[in-house]
């Protein structure tokens, strides 16, 4: 077991060697875009007062913030502050960026991880069953449904589910995290409110995973070791879940990591539809208000999170497959 992870340190180091330039390049690109933006931060800060304010006051604000310094100086100051943990001041919410993110990241993480867990469980089960009777009724229905759902914008699924389950049937709330009358965030209340958003996000992400598992299992059902298992007379369920699915799982593991950016986008849209107090809603608000500090911090942190998750899936791949040697 220990030999299997002999190269883990080196893989982490090699990944960091790629991840750090990615983050630096992304931050430079974002900063350049922010600098090219036609919005004057001093006027944005002053709001409508900018029209009546003394030009000297505005000039003083500009000088204090150093927005007229050369761009490389400004970039290094911004990055330096980020690295020291000072994420800056959100111009759209008028509070520190760090506290905006700290108050909301948890809800987004909760929605995303619940949806991912459901997607993984459902796609493994449905994909394997569809592959077992290839081109059978279940397989064809599932594939048709997957292609159809793939074409549906996630927010449209969300709105349709609100129309049906919240308004027409009245089973679940249409949005928010708690009842209007609630004073805190009780577990049952929050769970009741998260059913629709999490399911909608899961359904919208499922097609890709289901089709992948289905193709993978369909392929591995033709492998020699599966044939051998059949020859030994093992029951179909054991062959499907114990033999074919296990082999198909390996490539699936790394691909979860590559699909995470998609999941983040879905989460932003779902949170907007259901007015959840996560990072999605605040991202849109920051974008509408051209709030560079908040938007840049959210984008960079999310990118870092996705890169970390990619690394984690790579390590998990090595843990799951004894043939993979990290030091190779």
């Amino acid at each position: 077991m220990s030999r299997r992870f002999a190269g883990a340190g080196r893989v982490v180091r090699r990944r960091l060697l790629v991840a750090v330039p990615i983050l630096v390049l992304t931050s430079i690109g974002m900063f350049a875009l922010g600098a090219a933006s036609p919005i004057d931060p001093a006027k944005q800060y002053a709001g409508s007062a900018a029209f009546t304010a003394n030009p000297e006051v505005l000039a003083q604000i500009r000088a204090n913030w150093g927005v007229d310094d050369p761009l490389p100086v400004q970039y290094l100051r911004w990055i330096g502050n980020l690295l020291r943990g000072d994420l800056g001041w959100s111009t759209s919410r008028h509070e520190p960026v760090a506290s905006v993110i700290a108050a909301r990241a948890g809800w987004t993480l909760l929605v995303v991880s619940l949806a991912l867990a459901i997607v993984l469980l459902a796609s493994l089960l449905l994909g394997a069953l569809a592959a077992y009777r290839r081109n059978g009724i279940f397989d064809r229905t599932l594939r048709a449904a997957a292609y159809a759902v793939e074409a549906m914008p996630v927010f449209w699924i969300g709105l349709a589910s609100i129309a049906v389950f919240a308004l027409a049937l009245g089973w679940l709330p249409a949005g928010g995290l708690t009842d209007v009358t609630a004073s805190g965030t009780g577990f049952g209340d929050v769970a009741h409110h998260l059913v629709l958003p999490v399911l909608v996000l899961a359904i919208s992400q499922a097609p890709w995973f289901v089709l992948f598992v289905r193709d993978g299992v369909a392929d591995s059902l033709r492998d020699d070791h599966v044939l051998a298992a059949r020859a030994r007379g093992l029951p179909g369920r054991t062959i499907l879940f114990g033999h074919a699915l296990r082999t198909a799982l390996l490539p699936f593991l790394t691909l979860i990591g590559t699909h995470l950016p998609e999941l983040v986008g879905g989460a932003i849209l779902v949170e907007t539809v259901f007015s959840l107090p996560g990072l999605g809603g605040v991202t849109v608000q920051a974008a509408l208000g051209s709030d560079f500090p908040l938007l840049a911090a959210i984008t960079l942190l999310t990118t870092a999170a996705v890169l970390t998750a990619n690394l984690a899936t790579d390590l998990a791949y090595a843990a799951a497959d004894p043939r993979i040697r990290l030091d190779a």
């Binding site: 875009l33 950016p261 983040v264 986008g265 932003i268 991202t283 959210i298 984008t299 999310t302 990619n310």
Partner: peptide, 10 residues
């Protein structure tokens, strides 16, 4: 590896 909707929004 970048979340592309987020990048697009930015």
């Amino acid at each position: 590896a970048l979340p592309h909707l987020l990048l697009g929004i930015f």
